[in-house]
Computed example of a mutant assay.
Amino acid sequence: MQLNINHRTHYLYTDIVNYTIQQLRLTPQDGFGQRVRRWEIRVNGHLQRHDDTYGNAAHILVLDTPHEEINILATGEVETGLDTPPAYDALPREIYLRTTGLTEIDASLRQFAQQFGRIKPDERMLDEMMHAIVDRVPYNKGATAVDTTAIDAFKTGSGVCQDHAHIFIACCRYLGMPARYVSGYLFTNDGSLMESHAWADVWIKDTGWASFDVSNRCRTNGVHVRLATGLDYRDACPVSGMRVGGGLETMTVGVHVNQMQAQQ
């Protein structure tokens, strides 16, 4: 599948911002079933490319002159559904057993996970757990925030793709299976998802990394485009940073993922 992606982020401030520094994880890479045919990031500032701890292609954005808004546009073409292996992961898999603040587990989550750990953890068990999470925590936009933990989302009983991924990751790690958070895009025929998406990778013995889109109760396939991975949302979020000044901030995000005709 040939996908054309436009991801626009706009920040508007009520006062002058004297300095902004942000980390952008907005660049997909080849591998894991996808190939990047074209990609660029346009900003009203200075960009410096680097690879972060988890091997993500990242950029540091710096605006060191007074400004009242920030415009970030990531755009390009990605081919998906290919038979390409995951990119080389330099980190030991044991890293992905670490608990973070967003993926901590409590007694309620442990009890939930244990019902899937009574048998040897495998792909069938993970599929069952994926469905059980969405049954227990239905998708409900606006019920949680970016700093909501797996424990709180599970307790609240509603959440979004980020929460589903965190709960799934927390349970997998508790069961001794390395798991990581994935940020990216999802193509829908009706264009209903106008924002970034999130899912989870799990390391399965004798299989390797497998990806689970918990919110959509499915494995990832040709409609998914990977951007970044990490232990949780904070490691893989598309944009993060800090500023000096600015007053109140308003952020608007728009994502458009369209299917293109395959080129010969």
Rank of each mutant, 00 (worst) to 15 (best):
Y19R: 08
A132D: 07
I119K: 15
W199I: 10
H197P: 06
A145S: 14
P66N: 06
R25D: 02
A228P: 02
T144M: 00
I169P: 01
S196F: 05
L102D: 05
L47P: 14
P92M: 08
N6Q: 13
G208Q: 10
A113M: 02
G33K: 00
G33H: 02
F32W: 10
C237K: 08
C161S: 07
A200R: 00
D106S: 03
G117R: 01
E195Q: 13
D52A: 06
G55C: 09
L186S: 00
A179T: 04
K205G: 15
V78S: 05
Y19E: 03
A236M: 11
A57R: 14
A198Q: 05
E77Q: 12
M260D: 13
E77W: 05
G142E: 11
H7R: 09
M194D: 13
Q23R: 14
G55E: 05
E40D: 12
Q263R: 11
V36G: 04
R35D: 09
V182N: 04
Q259C: 01
P92N: 09
R217V: 07
A170K: 00
A74T: 02
D122R: 06
E195N: 13
A198W: 01
M129K: 08
T103C: 03
D106Q: 00
T9Q: 05
A210R: 10
M260W: 07
Y11G: 02
L47E: 11
T148F: 10
N6H: 10
R93F: 09
P86Y: 02
N56Q: 01
T80H: 00
T220S: 03
A107S: 10
E249H: 10
L91R: 07
H10I: 12
E69P: 13
D64M: 07
T53R: 15
A90P: 06
G222E: 15
I72L: 02
Q114N: 14
D64R: 09
Y185V: 06
Y181G: 03
R118S: 14
T100Q: 07
C218I: 15
L231Y: 09
A107L: 11
R124Q: 13
L231E: 09
T144V: 08
N4R: 12
M1L: 07
T144N: 02
Q114H: 15
I70N: 00
E79Y: 09
G81L: 00
V257R: 01
I70S: 07
I21E: 14
F112L: 08
A179Y: 00
T14N: 13
R38F: 13
M251A: 08
T9C: 10
F112C: 08
S183Q: 10
M177H: 00
L227P: 05
R37S: 13
T229S: 08
M251Q: 12
V223H: 03
E123Q: 12
L3Y: 04
L3S: 01
N221D: 14
L24P: 05
I119E: 15
R180Y: 12
D163H: 06
T250V: 07
L97A: 04
A170H: 02
D232R: 00
L97C: 04
K205S: 15
E77V: 13
H164F: 04
V137R: 04
D152Y: 01
Y54H: 04
S196D: 08
N258L: 12
G241Y: 04
R219L: 11
S196Y: 06
T188D: 08
R37W: 06
P28C: 03
H197W: 03
E128I: 11
